[in-house]
């Protein structure tokens, strides 16, 4: 084997491919951040709903969660982008990608947060009820903070997986990192090099995401900070 690595195309003066990489990376970051924020909100709402006293709401959430967790993300994206388009609901590739990722990650988030909620001891809920807290106060002051604190590492892991899965959005021609790489590959035939670059970028993004969550935990949960409990 005698392969000559050549990364020079990246800063080719006529066609600066590093700009495309950068642009793709930026889009990947946007997709990831939007999907995490929206998906967390929707997932937390579903987790709360799945502990509600209304059986039909609990069932509806369970059906949603199971459908999403047991079908491929790619199918969900195609269904939104091509399927709904034929019914007249047209999304841009970017909107379809954000929507699909949100719906997908929310299902996983919901299950993770629900496990956190269920780990809160019944006695603490009784104590809060006895003090006269309303159901909403009980949820937001007593149940959710320790529940989310407990499951934050699992959430961070799930969000990293989702960030990596944004790469399949190239399939609906969202111009994110993977799509940029594919185009550069087809123009330069430097597949080995470009996918090494892409892998390094994904690795860096994943590390950055994990670090952000570690920081978030440090900032949001003073008990961890004070007592030095690792997240």
């Amino acid at each position: 084997m005698n392969y000559q690595f050549d990364f020079s195309f990246l800063w080719d003066p006529d066609n600066a491919y590093w700009r495309d990489i950068l642009h793709g990376t930026w889009l990947t970051v946007q997709l990831t951040v939007l999907a995490i924020v929206l998906g967390f909100a929707l997932g937390a709402a579903c987790a709360i709903g799945s502990t509600s006293r209304i059986p039909s709401l609990r069932r509806a959430i369970a059906v949603y969660v199971e459908i999403i967790r047991n079908t491929p993300l790619l199918v969900q994206v195609f269904w939104l982008f091509f399927g709904l388009a034929s019914l007249g609901f047209k999304f841009s590739a970017f909107s379809a990608a954000v929507l699909a990722l949100t719906i997908n990650i929310a299902a996983y988030t919901s299950e993770i947060i629900r496990s956190g909620i269920e780990s809160v001891r019944k006695g603490q809920i009784e104590a809060a009820e006895s003090l006269g807290l309303s159901r909403m106060q009980l949820l937001f002051d007593v149940v959710l903070p320790p529940a989310i604190e407990r499951v934050l590492p699992s959430l961070a892991g799930q969000f990293v997986l989702m960030m990596l899965a944004t790469s399949i959005m190239a399939q609906i021609s969202t111009e994110e990192l993977m799509a940029a790489a594919s185009r550069i590959q087809s123009e330069t035939f430097r597949g080995f090099e470009i996918y090494i670059v892409v892998a390094v970028v994904y690795l860096a993004l994943a590390m950055a995401l994990r670090l952000s969550f570690a920081f978030l935990a440090w900032a949001a949960f003073p008990r961890r900070r004070r007592l030095g409990t690792p997240v």
Binding site: A127, S130, P146, R223
Partner: peptide, 12 residues
Amino acid sequence: GIVFQSYNLFPH
């Protein structure tokens, strides 16, 4: 007011 056998303080 009520006090329980297992304290039930809010740990966070």
